[in-house]
Amino acid sequence: MSRSNTLPFQMKVTKTVGLSPTVKSLKLGFNDPKLATAFSFEPGQFIFLSIPGYGDSVLTITSAVADLPQIEVAVRSVGNNTKAIHRLKIGETVFVRGPFGNHFDLKKMAGKEVIIIAGGIGLAPLRSLIKTIEKEPQNVGELKILAGAKEPEDFIFKSDLKTWSDFAQVYLTVDQADKNWTGYIGRVTKLIKEAKINQKAIAVLCGPPVMFLPLIKELEGLGLKDDNIYLMLERRMKCGIGKCQHCTCGDRYVCLDGPTFSWLELKDNWEAFL
């Protein structure tokens, strides 16, 4: 029997880690052993995480498929549900629906240079892809991670960023540096020149809406093809199954057709960058 799209299933918090002053990472295990074996997802897909009484939050899975039967998510505390999630302790129960949405095209990335560009918490949805590549780095040509944050302490996955430099080139930039900062200062766009991106590379972008257009301009300038530039969009969502209409974006549903879109798909979309 297939899982309900509306009724969530139980999971248990097995670990919590503070990632930044406002972001926490949660590791979740399945309560139902059958579900633990049946559950699968692809990097880039999202779930709804809920504490009954508080609401439902859309979160992209941040762990790799190989980490199953546990999954991880990163949660920024902003609303009622995410604040309640931040208060969770190990062993407590949460409710999950999903996975929903499309996923990264790993086959297309084979042998190619892959550029991950993230602004702020935008690194979270891309972590699953990075962790997947980490398991078999030889599958892609080269991995370059370009990440930006307001201040050094705002970076999420700080320890990951350190280990990722073992198999990837990691470029970090902040808007405001402190005295210990040794990385770059300024917008993520500035990192593009530093990273010496191959024009056949595949770029995947995630971050605040204002970040996209300037970055795309830079990447196009380097000769990257429109269908090799991918963007992850964020919208309000209530269902995840193309019903509630909150996530529609021009002719697309972010929950069904996305959250990852190629620039080719979005170029003429009049609502993608509002």
């Binding site: 009484g53 508080y54 609303g79 009622n80 604040k83 309640a84 208060r87």
Partner: peptide, 10 residues
């Protein structure tokens, strides 16, 4: 009830 459960009423 929202206040009791530490939730911002909407």
């Amino acid at each position: 009830s929202s206040l009791i459960m530490t939730k911002r009423p909407e």
